[in-house]
Nucleic acid binder design. Structure first.
Length: 479
RNA sequence: CCGGGUGUAGCGAAGGUGGUAUCGCGCCUGGUUUGGGACCAGGAGACCGCGCGUUCGAGUCGCGCCACUCGGACCA
């Protein structure tokens, strides 16, 4: 038998080499493929289907809160991009430029959008005239392009898919409320849909979006203790409005500049799913975004009636609204088990002749491997309950990982030592100065992740410079 | 962008000192199998990452480029 051991491609052990494990999962779970241009990835059907589920659920949340989808051009004239000083400084270095139209050199070069604030501003200038035109709550699902130096599947693409919301409001209060509303939608989405716990907070001036007054972020903890910025929501004040000369006449018959927000999440979310929930058998998908929630695998499918019985269960579950796949290919059951584990399907349903006699089937949970023999009567309820349990189980496990990787520190040396030994988020007090942030990066290799909304009092002084502290802040090594 | 590593069939690899490519898995066909990556038999599949050069002759030697990968710097 030992000689029959199949030479199966294995993924790298996640504890031995996490980054290699990650790349292996992306490829072996058939989420992504490389193209001939660095950093330009192909989203394969299974990977794209995860994104479609994310889109569907988030889009519904956006619509519920009054947002409308639009589509703006892909090209931005250089002169337009340059209207807001901080913004152009932040993005121009990583823009790709279109310089030719057909065979002719263009009078002015066009940037392929790295983000669309400037385009939205140009448009808003044309359509906002009165307070009655506000608020404008627009969102766009699209791709953007940033000429990154290094790239990795889902984590850093030169072209990536995202949504970018851009809103305009009559007052600062309304705009700030919008920034917070969308930030909370992201946080809830991470926790309730992706089963990923987040730390909610504000970015430092150094880390905030180019041109923003404030950037709110949800920060996630990967299985290896590194941080991943999960989504950002920005408050712009009226800075862009002034730069782009966007004005409206208020109820007071005076001209005002509107207040602006933008907010976005990208396919980087998928990287988070992989690195938070995955294990050494491959991907583990949270049920709410899994393209296949239940895979039905017939056992001894050549025998009379087996395929039919399996198809009946599949149809029953589909009718109840689950995403189900029946795999009646002629691969062996063992092959199928391994295949769908690699692809992270939350539940496997096995049904063979022995089960048929007892009117039962076997259900196996992807998250913990638990095997259950359950009746085919009421299988819909059983599956619904299990998918909920899986979501809860994934969240609990991820929360434990987050909680166990947050450490207070009271000096740069201590922060550095903890990061080197345990990884994770290091929390310290902070004076608010850029110099201290740079020093933490220089000496401990960590960037600030966020100033969490939930503050703790760890002391009165900044442990980096000794001056009075203003906030508690999280530090970490980020993807 | 800087430093290390790697590019040979879909995947993983072998191919001292130059002579037109080998193996395992996978794939296709037929048969036997089927509760953890099945077995037998037959078969198909390679511009050796791309370009230029040296040579009678380059997977092999030289130069350039591209891509992947691991660190670092930069960034969703």
């Amino acid at each position: 038998m030992a000689e029959n051991k199949k030479q199966v491609e294995q993924i790298t052990d996640m504890d031995a080499d996490f980054t290699q494990w990650y790349t292996d999962v992306c490829k072996k779970a058939e989420l992504i493929d490389y193209s001939s241009i660095k950093g330009m990835f192909i989203y394969r059907p299974y990977g794209y289907a995860i994104w479609e589920n994310i889109q569907r659920i988030l889009d519904a949340e956006f619509k519920k809160t009054g947002h409308e989808n639009v589509y703006l051009p892909m090209l931005i004239p250089e002169s337009l991009l340059q209207k807001e000083k901080d913004h152009v400084e932040g993005f121009a270095p990583e823009c790709a430029w279109v310089t030719m139209g057909g065979m002719d050199k263009l009078e002015e070069r066009f940037a392929i959008r790295p983000t669309s604030e400037t385009l939205f501003c140009e448009h808003y200038k044309n359509i906002i005239h009165s307070h009655r035109d506000l608020p404008k709550l627009y969102n766009q699902w699209t791709s953007v392009l940033r000429w990154e130096k290094t790239s990795r599947p889902f984590l850093r693409h030169r072209e990536f898919l995202w949504q970018e919301g851009h809103t305009m409001h009559a007052t600062a209060e309304e705009a700030i409320a919008e920034t917070e509303r969308m930030f909370n939608i992201y946080a809830d989405f991470y926790e309730n849909v992706l089963a990923i716990p987040v730390v909610k907070g504000r970015k430092t001036d150094k880390e905030k979006f180019s041109g923003a007054e404030a950037t709110y972020t949800v920060e996630c903890m990967m299985h290896d203790g590194k941080a991943l910025q999960g989504g950002t929501s920005h408050y712009f004040g009226d800075g862009f409005a002034k730069a782009f000369d966007i004005t409206f006449t208020g109820k007071d018959n005076q001209l005002h500049n509107p207040f602006q927000t933008s907010w976005g999440v990208s396919t980087r979310m998928i990287a988070g799913i992989i690195m938070v929930h995955g294990d050494n058998n491959g991907l583990v998908l949270p049920p709410k975004v899994a393209p296949i929630q239940v895979v039905v695998i017939p056992v001894a499918q050549h025998k009379e009636g087996v395929i039919e019985a399996n198809r009946a269960v599949m149809e029953k579950l589909q009718a109840a609204g689950f995403r189900v796949k029946l795999d009646d290919s002629d691969n062996s059951p063992g092959w199928k088990f391994a295949e769908y584990e690699m692809k992270g399907v939350p539940l496997r349903l096995e049904l063979g002749p022995k089960d048929m006699e007892k009117n039962q089937c076997v259900l196996v949970r992807r998250d913990n491997g638990e095997k259950l023999f359950v009746s085919l009567d009421g299988i819909e309820e059983t599956v619904a309950k299990l998918l909920e349990d899986i979501h809860a189980g994934l969240f609990a496990k991820a929360k434990k990982n987050l909680d166990e990787h947050c450490f207070p520190a009271f000096s740069v040396e201590e922060a550095k030592a903890i990061q080197a030994e345990k990884g994770g988020f290091i929390k310290t007090m902070w004076c608010g100065e850029l110099d201290c942030e740079l020093k933490m990066k220089e000496e401990a290799g960590m960037s600030s992740r966020c100033i969490p909304l939930e503050q703790e009092h760890l002391g009165d002084v900044c442990p980096i410079c000794g001056k009075p502290a203003k906030h508690m802040i999280y530090w970490g090594v980020a993807y």
